[in-house]
Computed example of a mutant assay.
Amino acid sequence: MPGIVDRLRANIVLYGALAANLGIGVAKFVAAAITGSSSMLSEGVHSCVDSLNQVLLLYGQHSAKRPADAAHPFGYGRELYFWAFVVALLIFTVGAGVSFYEGYQHIRHPAEMTNPTVNYIVLGFSMLLEGSSWAVAWREFNQGRGNVGWWQAIRQSKDPAGFIVLFEDSAALIGLLIALAGNVAAHALARPELDGYASIAIGCVLAIVAIFLARESKGLLIGERADPAVVAEVYKLVDGHPAIASVNHVRTIHTAPESVFVAISADFHDEVTMGEGERLIEEIETRLKAALPILSSIYIRPEKREDAVVYVPSAH
């Protein structure tokens, strides 16, 4: 039972967003069917896409926890990044695509909106649920970023689940405001095509979010280094060992959000024998893992400074 509780707590952002989107999606589709609103239909599709996205991210988190095997010696952690990229594609192709199509069709063939009050009630209900989901996502993200600025924290984050939900919920709230404005304008001015323009505007918001998420996911898929502070700490710990003459370079790559592979090239003092070197390497690895638990795999290569590409890390 504790394990299940811990997993639920760890995924509270995803579960909260999933529950909100499922309820909102049904309400939006019902409202769209009653009133004939294009923007409400776009918003319904948007909620369905968001719900599917949360399921994919939960699946990605589950798959990423599989242990390493012969085919994947560094584990399956980066599978989460693949599903994050799929999420970005879905937002762009399905969410934005349907919004553009529905908006275009409604502009070409405007139909008078009926019972707009239904839309207003559903939009208000949706804002309440989306706002609650956004607040949970923001609180969890805010706790994890520490003293780092929110934009910098997003760019440096190696766990896409948190910032994807945050951006999805932000886009959803903006979309709801656009849908509300489109509905009010279409009804008040007796110009139903304005509802179609609102649908296109929602598509633009989703397209921008999708492009940003695809860009961030692409970087994670290709492979990103660890936080510069982690690299600098590795450099400092190895360089401070009495058997090390100099550290030539420290290279890292995230194999999962909380897992880093590090390769170190170090020049040992000439008097260190091969037998002593093996013991010293094991000692340094133990010291590094104790200081930096995020280091899942450590490779230390003895190499003369003149034979290596020297790299001195910066914490900035």
Rank of each mutant, 00 (worst) to 15 (best):
G3K: 07
V5N: 05
L8A: 14
L8P: 03
L8K: 09
R9D: 02
R9H: 03
R9F: 02
N11L: 08
V13I: 07
Y15T: 04
A17G: 15
L18I: 06
G23N: 06
I24Q: 08
I24F: 14
V26C: 10
V26T: 14
A27V: 12
K28W: 08
F29R: 09
A32R: 10
A33P: 00
I34L: 15
S38M: 09
S39I: 11
S42N: 01
V45C: 01
S47F: 06
C48T: 13
V49H: 00
L56N: 06
L58N: 07
Y59F: 10
G60R: 14
S63Q: 08
K65R: 15
A70T: 05
A70L: 06
A71S: 12
F74D: 00
L80K: 11
L80P: 04
W83M: 09
F85I: 03
F85C: 03
V86C: 09
F92T: 06
V94A: 05
A96C: 12
G97P: 03
F100Q: 12
G103Y: 03
Y104N: 06
H109F: 14
H109S: 12
P110T: 14
M113D: 00
T114S: 11
P116Y: 03
T117V: 13
G124N: 07
M127G: 15
L128H: 13
L128E: 07
L129V: 13
E130D: 08
A135C: 11
R139A: 01
R139V: 01
R139H: 01
E140C: 07
Q143W: 01
G144N: 09
G149R: 09
A153I: 03
A153P: 00
I154G: 05
R155F: 06
S157F: 05
P160K: 12
P160Q: 05
G162E: 00
G162N: 09
G162Y: 02
V165H: 05
L166W: 00
F167V: 03
E168Q: 15
S170F: 10
A172D: 03
L173P: 02
L177D: 02
I178K: 05
A181K: 07
A181G: 02
G182F: 12
N183K: 03
V184C: 11
A190Y: 06
A190F: 05
R191Y: 02
P192S: 04
P192C: 09
L194F: 10
G196C: 05
A198W: 06
I202L: 12
I208S: 01
V209Y: 00
F212C: 02
L213M: 10
R215W: 12
E216S: 12
S217C: 02
L220W: 04
E224W: 09
R225W: 06
A226W: 11
A226H: 13
V231C: 10
V231N: 08
E233H: 10
V234D: 03
K236Q: 11
V238C: 11
H241D: 14
A243N: 08
S246P: 00
N248S: 13
H249V: 00
T252E: 04
T252R: 08
T252A: 04
A256S: 07
I264T: 00
S265T: 08
F268Y: 13
D270T: 12
E271L: 05
E271C: 05
E271F: 04
R279I: 11
E282D: 15
E282W: 10
I284T: 14
E285C: 14
R287T: 15
L288P: 11
A290F: 04
S296P: 01
R301T: 13
P302T: 09
E306Y: 10
A308E: 06
P313V: 10
A315C: 11
H316E: 15
H316G: 08
